[in-house]
């Protein structure tokens, strides 16, 4: 007598993700951004810093896909080259946030109780500072640059990442396989990297894709205020700032960088949503995060 045991296959997270149109949209925009940035290294239709005042304010045409700006630069080329800054800032901030987040989360969950309390308070204090404020403080001390944006967003969002993943790490570090690891003689650091972090990773990745969205907005905001990318570096926020005074006369010129920013930010957000929906077993639970 044999009984057939029905094989229950859990759907993989990748499959769940693919079925979510919002997540796919996020993935597509992210891939598009990366492609644009890579492409701009080897090719742009025109030199993005080349000015040709005689051909200023050309409307969109086959020669100038998105038209030209007030000093005759090709807007498409500028935006293409600007995607490099956007990508740098997004990835850079996410990396800094990851490091800051891991450090805070690990210190806040695996150390002595009194130390954990201090870390918790410190996180609360740091969360109280808005990202833009930290960035402007750093920029006025060190001068505006892309690095300042990356560090500022990385630190302020990293604190968030730390706060969200701290209870996760605590939960995982109490599970049996971790205890088994300790019994087998693994040190705390190895145990963290071998067992705890891989199990917290989904939470992390979701947080970091949201961090990218914040970073893109922060870079454009800071460049708009003159604290971000240097003048001669093509950047979306800078284009927006430079063209906004002509908005009454050439409204279309501002729409392009605005659209690029909007779609990218939306894309990173939806990517984060999609990843969360696909990896989080407690589906639909709203996360509360602050920037």
């Amino acid at each position: 007598m044999t009984t057939t045991v029905p094989i229950v296959r859990q759907r993989g997270w990748a499959r769940t993700f693919i079925r979510n149109p919002a997540g796919v949209f996020g993935l597509v925009t992210t891939v598009a951004l990366v492609s644009c940035a890579l492409l701009s290294i080897v090719w742009t239709p025109y030199d993005p810093v080349h000015t040709d005042v005689l051909s200023k304010w050309h409307p969109p045409s086959s020669a100038h896909l998105l038209g030209t700006d007030n000093i005759g630069r090709d807007i498409f080329s500028v935006l293409l080259a600007g995607s490099r800054v956007t990508l740098q800032v997004a990835v850079g901030s996410a990396l800094v946030a990851a490091v800051v987040g891991v450090v805070f989360a690990a210190l806040g969950s695996l150390t002595a109780r009194w130390f954990r309390e201090i870390i918790a308070v410190l996180i609360d204090i740091l969360i109280a500072f808005p990202t833009l404020l930290i960035a402007m403080m750093l920029a006025s001390a060190l001068g505006g640059s892309i690095m300042v944006v990356i560090v500022a967003v990385g630190i302020s969002f990293g604190v968030n990442v730390g706060r969200v993943s701290r209870p996760e790490i605590r939960r995982v570090s109490r599970s049996e396989f971790v205890t088994a690891g300790i019994a087998a003689g693994l040190g705390p650091v190895r145990n963290l990297t071998r067992h705890t972090l891989p199990n917290v990773a989904p939470v992390f990745i979701v947080q970091l894709s949201w961090c990218m969205a914040v970073a893109v907005l922060a870079e454009t905001g800071l460049s708009y205020l003159g604290y971000g990318a240097p003048v001669s570096t093509p950047s979306w926020g800078r284009v927006l700032a430079e063209l906004q005074s002509y908005i009454g006369i050439h409204p279309l010129s501002v729409v392009w960088p605005g659209l690029a920013i909007t779609i990218t930010v939306l894309g990173f957000n939806l990517l984060g949503d999609g990843l969360r929906d696909a990896t989080d077993p407690r589906l639909g639970r709203p996360e509360v995060i602050t920037a």
Binding site: W210, A213, V214, L217, L240, Q244, I247, G248, P251, V254, V255, G258, L259, I261, T262, V265, L266, N269, L270, G272, D273, E287, V288, I289, T290, A291
Partner: peptide
């Protein structure tokens, strides 16, 4: 929250467009 960011992006652009259009009369 993420929708808020998206909304912020759109709002920023709308604000710019509106600021350019107001005062034309």
């Amino acid at each position: 929250m993420r929708t808020l960011y998206a909304a912020l992006g759109i709002a920023a652009i709308s604000a710019l467009v509106l600021s350019g259009c107001s005062g034309q009369g």
